[in-house]
Design a protein around this nucleic acid. Structure first.
Ligand SMILES: [Zn+2]
Ligand SMILES: [Zn+2]
Ligand SMILES: [Zn+2]
Ligand SMILES: [Zn+2]
Lengths: 132, 132
DNA sequence: TAACACTATGTAATAATATAACATTTACAA
DNA sequence: TTGTAAATGTTATATTATTACATAGTGTTA
């Protein structure tokens, strides 16, 4: 059973915006978009983002400093994320591939490190951009 | 045969600093450290970093906004990078694992996307920090 | 040599991303 | 109702990165 998180007011406003967006959103673009709803300061945005990331409702695309809603039913795998990023049009998608996530979640090397989390970003050209 | 890159003056200064460092360095920490060598402005640092990343002498740790020297003999695989990051002591190592890099380099899914590059960051506790 | 293209440098200003510090309020359980 | 954790509001500031413009070096070729 998945834990239920009742989003607070700011968290809900910001999640809804990200969830509706077809592309990853940056913090200050979010701020600009929610100012009409009474969220005035960067910190209010970053606090909501932090929480939403923590509970797996959104993910941060590290190479882009942008945030995207989880596509895997409120990510049971927020500690195991993989994305594809088109370097031409900047389209970003979350990859849900059982084999891949199993392979990486079980990955171990000789370092003696215990890995509890990973983030993977693939780059390339999407179908559309390839055919241009 | 690997292409030879003759580093320019600023590139060399900045590469040497990163290469000697036991930990990833941030751009402004680099700037601070090279001011005695006549590099005065952020842009001088960022330009050198961009070039060094491009030719694979260093890598950017995206989740930390920091830079580390390539550990794989001037990375033939600067387009296929993997790191382990200790969330306690922040130790970062480059992972060289042939199976892993083969697996990821050959990864394809149904999206029709052609992946030419990836970056993977594993998080966890290093040996030292685990035993505390 | 001269003309050209390309890479690198220097400098100032500014943009974009993120956090610190502090005061207050809300949710909710003991 | 008292305690506590989570969330909010606000101001200021820190950190990371780029724009714009001027100049200088490097190597190639006419
Ligand atoms: Zn997800
Ligand atoms: Zn595309
Ligand atoms: Zn490398
Ligand atoms: Zn450690």
């Amino acid at each position: 059973m998945e834990k239920q998180h009742n989003l607070s007011k700011n968290q809900k406003i910001i999640f809804d915006l990200i969830d509706k967006s077809p592309e990853p959103l940056k913090a200050y673009s979010i701020l600009f978009n929610v100012q009409k709803k009474g969220i005035n300061a960067p910190l209010q945005v970053y606090r909501a983002l932090d929480k939403l990331v923590e509970i797996g409702k959104i993910h941060k695309i590290e190479s882009r400093n942008a945030f995207i809603a989880c596509q895997n039913s409120s990510c049971q795998i927020s500690k195991a994320t993989a994305f594809s990023i088109c370097e031409s049009c900047e389209k970003v998608s979350e990859i849900s591939n059982t084999k891949l996530s199993k392979y990486l979640s079980n990955f171990a090397d000789e370092s003696g490190m215990k890995y509890s989390k990973y983030n993977l970003e693939f780059f390339g050209l999407c179908k559309k951009c390839k055919s241009k």
